[in-house]
């Protein structure tokens, strides 16, 4: 019976002691310890988060780099292609122009040849005419000195004149 009867004195001292202990420990032990622990945990959490962020950023950067590289490569491709096209076009244009010019030149040459030929023909004709007149004059003169001769000459001349 005695064992299970709480003594008033011990209850009194326990209440006081416990309240004092609770107060002191709360202020000087639990607050700093729990504060330090949670601070550390926060620190670890933020460190982990920032590491994760850095990793993501790194990944982004790498992706960016790759993208830029790809773009540059594509640009180079297009540039090369354009250049090739331009070159081809230039060559083709040049060829065409040259052709046209050549054609022109040929045509001019032909025209010149024709006109030269015409002129030459005309001159030839006039010279032939002149010569024929001169010959005819001379022949006429010689022939005309002798009446017979004149007559036979005229005869042969006339026969020749058909040649032209």
């Amino acid at each position: 019976m005695d064992l299970v009867t709480p003594g008033l004195g011990l209850v009194f001292w326990t209440v006081i002691t416990f309240l004092v202990l609770l107060f002191i420990l709360r202020k000087f032990a639990w607050k700093p310890i729990l504060g330090a622990v949670s601070e550390r945990e926060e620190g670890i959490k933020t460190a982990l988060a920032s590491a994760e962020n850095a990793r993501k950023e790194m990944e982004n950067l790498q992706a960016d780099n790759e993208r830029i590289l790809k773009e540059a490569r594509a640009e180079r491709e297009t540039m090369l292609k354009e250049a090739r096209e331009i070159k081809n076009k230039l060559i083709a244009d040049a060829k065409e122009e040259a052709q046209v010019q050549a054609n022109n030149m040929i045509a001019q040459a032909q025209a010149a040849i024709i006109s030269e030929k015409k002129a030459a023909m005309a001159e030839l004709k006039s010279q032939v005419a002149d010569l024929s007149i001169e010959i005819a004059e001379k022949v006429v003169r010689g022939e005309l000195a002798n009446k017979d001769k004149q007559m036979s000459l005229v005869e042969s001349m006339l026969g020749d004149a058909k040649l032209n």
């Binding site: 202990l21 002191i24 420990l25 000087f28 032990a29 639990w30 607050k31 700093p32 310890i33 504060g35 330090a36």
Partner: peptide, 13 residues
Amino acid sequence: LLLIFITAARKYN
């Protein structure tokens, strides 16, 4: 208890 825990708490400061 006070000795143990207050000493421990000081270690963090």
